[in-house]
Each structure stands twice: as structure tokens, then as C-alpha cells.
């Protein structure tokens, strides 16, 4: 799908994607020449179709996690295999505020978000995941 600014006859560029909220994505495009902007609002079926393709509107900034789509979408799943004791001991601890912040992430992407934030925290050497660490990770993965 491509968008054209009819006034300028110029292709419009992706600006940002928000959601999904209540099954709808809001994707904003802008014309680089005249600055006109418009938002594409998807209905739940369109949102789901995009999701099932395993692609990201606006492009991917980080490679997908292994089995990202299946694990993020399968409603009933086995608990993952417990991590080895040494790995678990080294895993950063979530503060209550940071956990509450994570609860605001849509449920179907929450496991991936948790994993990405924990990985970021581990890479940075943080032992505790605070709201600040969540914001840092968000800036890294979703600038």
C-alpha cells in the first residue's frame, strides 16, 4: 500500500504508528513537500491481517525475537521452560512502578515487550528495572 499526496503528486512518507487500541492502528503519513498529513485508521480485521503477516508498519528497527508471532499471539501456551538457576539469579528485578507501566502495553505484545526490556536492562548492567529503564528501552526499540 502506498499513499500519494494528490495536490503535490508526491508519495507520502510514514510518520508514526500508534496502537493497536481497541483493535485499531493509527498510522500517520505526511507529504514532504506541502506538509499535509493524514492518518490511516484500520478496522479490527485489517489490524489482524497486518499482524498475521509478521511485518511492522513503519518498518522494523530490531530483528524479530524467535517465535515472536506465535508466542505473542497464541492464546493458551505452556509456561516456558524455567531458566537455568544462574541465569535467573542474574535477571534484573522489576519495580512495582515499572510493572504497572508494563501493564499498559497491549496484552498480546506484553511478553515480547517484557523480554526486550529485560534484555536491554541486562545489556546495560541494570539489576533493577525502573520506569526510567523502561523509558530507555522504549527509546531504544521504538524511537
Amino acid at each position: 500500500m502506498k499513499f500519494l499526496c494528490v495536490r503535490c503528486d508526491e508519495p507520502m512518507a510514514f510518520e508514526k504508528a500508534e496502537g493497536p487500541e481497541e483493535g485499531s492502528l493509527a498510522v500517520t503519513f505526511a507529504c514532504a513537500r506541502c506538509g499535509a498529513r493524514f492518518a490511516l485508521l484500520t478496522n479490527p480485521w485489517e489490524t489482524q491481517l497486518v499482524r498475521t503477516l509478521g511485518v511492522r508498519i513503519g518498518g522494523r528497527r530490531v530483528p524479530p525475537e524467535p517465535m515472536e508471532l506465535v508466542r505473542g499471539t497464541l492464546v493458551q501456551q505452556r509456561d516456558p521452560e524455567p531458566a537455568p538457576a544462574d541465569v535467573r539469579a542474574a535477571a534484573p528485578v522489576w519495580t512495582a512502578e515499572a510493572s504497572q507501566r508494563l501493564e499498559r502495553v497491549p496484552e498480546f505484545v506484553r511478553p515480547m515487550a517484557r523480554q526486550a526490556i529485560e534484555r536491554y536492562a541486562t545489556e546495560q548492567g541494570y539489576r533493577e528495572i525502573t520506569v526510567r529503564v523502561v523509558d530507555e528501552a522504549r527509546a531504544r526499540y521504538m524511537p
Binding site: 479490527p44 480485521w45 491481517l49 499482524r51 497464541l74 492464546v75 493458551q76 505452556r78 509456561d79 498480546f108
Partner: peptide
């Protein structure tokens, strides 16, 4: 290897399961 029980069906999370045949 991902499903919790032998009788668990595969259900994909979606904003709506209506018209699931579409996706």
C-alpha cells in the same frame, strides 16, 4: 510443544474472533 494440554485448541489472539476466516 507450545500448547498446555493435549485437548487445547489453537486459538490466536485477535481484536475479534468474528470473521476469523479472513485472517
Amino acid at each position: 510443544l507450545l500448547l498446555p494440554r493435549d485437548d487445547t485448541p489453537v486459538i490466536w489472539e485477535a481484536p475479534t474472533q468474528d470473521d476469523a476466516y479472513v485472517w
